[in-house]
Every structure is written in C-alpha cells, then in structure tokens.
Simulated scan of single mutants.
Amino acid sequence: MDLSTVKDMIRIIPDFPRAGISFKDITTVVKDGEAFKYVINEMAKRCADKDIDLIVGPEARGFIVGAPLAYQLGVGFVPIRKPGKLPAEKIRKEYQLEYGFDAMELHKDAIKPGQKVLIVDDLLATGGTIITAVKLVEELGGKIAGLMFLIELTELGGRETLRGYDVISLIQYPY
C-alpha cells in the first residue's frame, strides 16, 4: 500500500453536491481495512515529532480520521460539533459558507490552557472550517501543534487561510 494507491481509491463525484464541485469521497478508502490502517499510520508518522496532548476533529469526517489517529498516538480525542449537539457548557464560533453561515461548538472544559492540540480533518479546501476550529481551541488556551488532512485541494487557498500554522496533507488535488 502507498499514497498513490490510496489516491486511486478515492472516488471522485463530479457536480456533487452541486454543479461545478468535484467531490472527493473517502468512504471508498475507509471501508478498506488495509487502506484505512495505512492512512492512519501515515498520519501518525507525519506527526510523530510533535508533542501532542489532544487531537481535535470537526464534525463529521474529522471524527472518521481524528479518533483512530488519537488512538494510534495514545492521546485523547475532542469533537467539535455542529450547534445543539454538545450537552455541557460550550463556546461557539460562526463562520461563513459560500451561501450563508454555520457554526461550531466546543465544550468549555475540553481543552486545558497550554495543551498542545493537533486538529485533524479529512479535507482542506478553503480553510474556513479549520480556521474556525483553530479559533475555538485557542480561545480555550490550547496551543496548535499542527493541522492534518488526508486530502488537500491546493488551488482553493486553504494553506493561505491557515498561514502561520503547520499544515500537513497526505494527498493533494488541484481541485
């Protein structure tokens, strides 16, 4: 198994969820035990030199790659959720979508000041979701150790949005 094989496994669906979007479907990778294990192991290798206390993953696909990576590294996993999903006291940040706004929430007690946090998601596009996750973590005093993605859409400017942070991606597509 190698990254080229994994990239070939990713299903590309044109015009989903709307015209002009080329959706990168990772379900074809995560349903294959060997490929999924390889991806998580590769992510673990790429952050082995970081002193990480926690992994944070945004809903929903950040859970898919973030939780097993946290398990592999022997650290905790903290979910960032859509509004109304977290039961305890939380903080909230709104962010802009192409057509409107959305929000994400994080439990106030999820991160202790000074903890080193790796934020993990399946895909980096414009960086809007992840910069919002960064702001939530930093509001609680967490220190960003890095931002890790299975896929990066290089032409959409996500790295520029996340300038100043260590961005790691396994597979790149122009768009």
Rank of each mutant, 00 (worst) to 15 (best):
M1Q: 10
D2S: 04
D2P: 03
S4E: 15
V6R: 01
V6H: 01
D8G: 14
I10N: 08
I12C: 05
I13C: 07
R18Y: 15
G20W: 14
I21G: 01
V29E: 00
V29L: 08
G33V: 10
N41D: 15
M43K: 04
R46P: 03
A48E: 11
D51N: 15
I52R: 00
L54K: 10
L54V: 08
G57D: 12
P58V: 12
E59D: 15
A60G: 06
I64R: 04
G66T: 04
A67S: 02
P68G: 05
P68M: 02
P68C: 09
A70M: 11
Q72D: 06
L73G: 03
G74V: 05
V78C: 04
V78T: 02
P83L: 13
P83G: 00
L86D: 00
P87G: 02
R92G: 00
E94P: 03
E98R: 10
Y99K: 04
Y99S: 06
F101H: 12
M104G: 04
M104F: 15
A110H: 15
I111L: 11
L118R: 01
I119Q: 05
I119A: 06
V120L: 07
V120Q: 00
D121V: 03
D121C: 14
D121W: 09
A125F: 13
A125Y: 07
T126F: 14
T126Q: 01
T129V: 06
I130D: 08
T132M: 13
T132S: 11
A133Q: 06
E138D: 05
E139Q: 13
E139M: 13
E139N: 12
I144F: 10
G146K: 06
G146I: 05
L147Q: 08
L147T: 03
F149Y: 15
L150C: 00
L150S: 02
I151N: 02
I151R: 02
L153I: 00
L156S: 05
G157Q: 08
R159S: 09
L162M: 07
L162V: 11
R163Y: 10
R163V: 08
D166W: 13
D166T: 13
V167H: 10
L170S: 10
I171Y: 10
Q172L: 02
Y173E: 09
